[in-house]
Design a binder for these strands. Structure first.
Lengths: 240, 240
DNA sequence: TTCTACACGTGATAC
DNA sequence: TGTATCACGTGTAGA
């Protein structure tokens, strides 16, 4: 059994040299990494359990090395070619990316959302409703407006929709004045592809009054759904 | 010489068991990893070259394992606890982050530039100004507003800022009417933490007129910088 | 020289 | 059962 190990000795010495060479030319030829065959190289010897184990172990080592190498390739911060250093640099790089992402995300949400708190029952609603809408009508486009796509909910105090004539409505809306409330309202209106003829926004002490004179391009049925924590405007466009 | 290896045998069997236990509780106790001392544990034997080598090798292995472990901790996609899989997952995760970053970056610049060519001095401006803002004044918050955070740029046709009295301005703005233009304008205004007393938005054929009566909470100097492809409003808040 | 990092074969362990 | 992963000690090559 241990004879196999001795017989392989010279073969693997040359192979080791080749691998050592590979170690210094990493990043160039990763793809053409052929793993070792489990058949014996001496041409007909019986493959014992030990030799299989050796080959398996070789493949395992090579796989790990190749991957460490590929890891090295995707990490820009190069310090040393050392295995442990590769992993260390990768960790630091991932942490750096995490921080970067977090800072960007935090900056965006901070700017958009201000300092208010997140409403817990919000995510559920946000996920459920669009599905039911899409499944009901085929030619209903993305007519689902969600003020809560980001930022915080709008507290609607009063809402009325007045029918003026075909395709024309007047929407009057009073809501709490919070951060980005105006922007969110406008976002909702514009996402519905309504034509806003004129809109007036007036700010009271802590409330906001918005009156919009809107015209829709097709005959629609406007349905305003008001939650205490958010405003959703759903337009059912009739299929023609 | 090989007696040392045999003497350590049991010690390392228990240690290996402990490490195997660690394998199932990774991510909890990474910090308290003490490396092996190079002194002999049998209390007085001469430290031969071989034993030193053994200890060094042990430390090297442990270091690599610990780092692979730490790498595992920072990668969210968990598939297998295997060493090679850890590295593989890390590679895929880094590639994922790269793609994500690239797509976000590309999206932002693409949306900012619209269909026009990318303005070369833009990135410089975008990166430089907030830094200079923060470094110059201490109490200056995130007063840098960017309408082009998503969606399409605003083509500003006319812009005027009229000083009414201290803390009060009238901003009149005419711009092209595109998707989400109103929302973006409101977003900019609100992100500046200005108090909008009254705003009126009127829609012409393809243009949009917005007149806002705003009040700022502190004495500021309003600087509106208008690009042909985007609108940036920068408020220099004076430190008090 | 010593020190460091490595690949190797081997036995053990878990599935 | 075999198959896969692992830690170990050892020899070696370069600094």
């Amino acid at each position: 059994m241990e004879n196999f190990g001795e017989e392989y000795k010279h073969y693997w010495e040359t192979s080791m040299f080749f691998q050592t060479q590979e170690l210094h030319s990493w990043g160039l030829n990763e793809a053409l990494s052929g793993y070792y065959d489990s058949s014996s190289p001496d041409g007909g010897a019986s493959s014992s359990v030990a030799s299989k184990n050796i080959v398996s172990e070789r493949n395992r080592r090579k796989k790990l090395n190749d991957r460490l190498f590929a890891l090295r390739a995707v990490v820009p911060n190069i310090s040393k070619m050392d295995k442990a250093s590769i992993v260390k640099d990768a960790i630091e790089y991932i942490e750096h990316l995490h921080e970067q992402e977090k800072s960007i995300q935090g900056e965006i949400t901070e700017l958009e959302a201000g300092k208010q708190k997140h409403h817990p029952s919000y995510d559920h609603f946000q996920k459920e409703l669009p599905v039911s809408l899409r499944s009901k009508k085929k030619r209903t486009e993305h007519l689902f407006a969600d003020v809560s796509s980001r930022n915080f909910p709008i507290q609607v105090i009063e809402l009325s929709v007045a029918y003026v004539r075909e395709k024309t409505f007047v929407v009057s809306l009073t809501c709490s004045k919070r951060r980005d409330t105006i922007a969110k309202l406008c976002e909702v209106f514009e996402s519905l592809q309504l034509k806003i003829i004129s809109a007036n926004i007036t700010s009271f002490s802590s409330t906001l009054l918005k009156t919009a004179f809107i015209e829709v391009s097709l005959p629609v049925a406007l349905i305003f759904i008001v939650y205490t924590t958010s405003l959703r405007i759903i337009v059912f466009r009739l299929t023609d």
